[in-house]
Computed example of a mutant assay.
Amino acid sequence: MQFRQRPREELELNLIPLIDVIFMLLIFFMLTTTFVHDRTLNVTLPVSSQGTEKRAPVKDHVIEIARDGRIAIDGKIYDSDAIRPVLRSIAADQRPVVVWADADVVNQKVISVLDLAREAGITKVGLGTTPVK
């Protein structure tokens, strides 16, 4: 007895559900990822009883002042003379600025940076601290 062979259907791999799942995972990870400022300089923030664990939002500009006087703005290290144009561009951006000054930095260095920021037109300035543990 001879059976009739049915024509075989070609197997195909449907990638559309796989692509949908990958896009959903991508959206999930983008929404749940926490973006924080990485410190460019090794800065030990001063302790304050009014400080909080809350970090500066990523949208804020960060000025770091190291113990040895080096200054970093938004992750780039600058000379003291070269920060004026950078501060002017930050002032035009009108976003808040957070100053992370090392606890052992000379107070005059912080005041000088704050003066340059005020001169550039920056009005929203905060100082980063660490809460008492």
Rank of each mutant, 00 (worst) to 15 (best):
P85V: 05
L127I: 10
T34H: 04
T32C: 07
A66F: 06
Y78S: 07
R118I: 10
R84S: 15
V110H: 15
K59M: 12
R55S: 15
L127G: 04
I65F: 01
M1A: 12
D68G: 14
T123H: 05
D93Q: 03
R55Q: 11
Q2V: 14
Q5K: 15
R84K: 15
A72I: 08
Y78D: 00
K59N: 14
L41H: 01
L114I: 04
V21W: 09
T34D: 09
K76R: 07
L15Y: 14
F28I: 13
T129F: 13
V62H: 06
R4I: 05
K59Y: 11
K59W: 15
V98F: 01
R39V: 01
F29Y: 11
V97C: 06
D20W: 10
V98A: 10
V47K: 03
M24Q: 11
Q5S: 10
Q108E: 14
I22V: 09
P57E: 12
R84G: 02
T33C: 11
R8N: 01
V97I: 06
V43H: 00
S48V: 06
A91K: 05
P17H: 01
R70T: 08
F3D: 08
L45T: 01
G75Q: 02
A92T: 03
Q108P: 04
K109I: 14
G121R: 06
E12N: 12
A92H: 11
Q5F: 05
E64D: 06
D68M: 08
Q108W: 05
V62C: 04
K109S: 02
T44M: 07
P85A: 04
I63R: 00
V97P: 01
R55A: 10
L11K: 14
Y78N: 07
A101E: 00
N42E: 02
I77H: 15
V106S: 08
G121T: 15
V62N: 07
G75H: 13
P17Q: 03
K124N: 06
L114D: 03
K133L: 14
T130H: 09
L41T: 00
I83C: 03
I111P: 00
